[in-house]
Amino acid sequence: MRIRPNRRTLTAAIPTATMADIAFLLIIFFMVTTAYSLDRTALELPQTREQEQSPKGAALIVVAADDTFRFSAGETDAEPVTGLEGLAAGIRGVTAANRLHPFSIKADRNVKYRTIDAVLEQLRQAGAERITLLSRGEDTR
């Protein structure tokens, strides 16, 4: 008996259809977990070992090294405000709508505590409760 050699040709193609599935899955993951910065001011943040994610939509108070303030209610980019009075007006605007609205303080590590104390006092007077002091993790340099 003569055995005919099997001449099935194998196509040299790499299946790439599933790669896009995985990639889109990762995209959705990053889209959900990414919280965009409301402020891009270059500051030297204090370093802490403990780090918690600040609540999404938290209002942001930025205190630069030269004691200038920027404020965002949590939806738009942070805008400069004039002194403590301008900041207090912004804070009151947020807490008037929702007293439990969370706040984040992004302050330079070299700022005098006097400024932070004044900011905390404004927050306390406005009735704010949930505060996050933004920091840099010890492992990220």
Partner: peptide, 22 residues
């Protein structure tokens, strides 16, 4: 797009220490 979201999430400063005011 993955690379974009990776970079965006790396540069956003949204972590810190939490506390409650009285």
């Amino acid at each position: 797009l993955i690379i974009f979201f990776l970079v965006a999430s790396f540069y956003s400063v949204t972590r810190g220490v939490q506390f409650s005011l009285p």
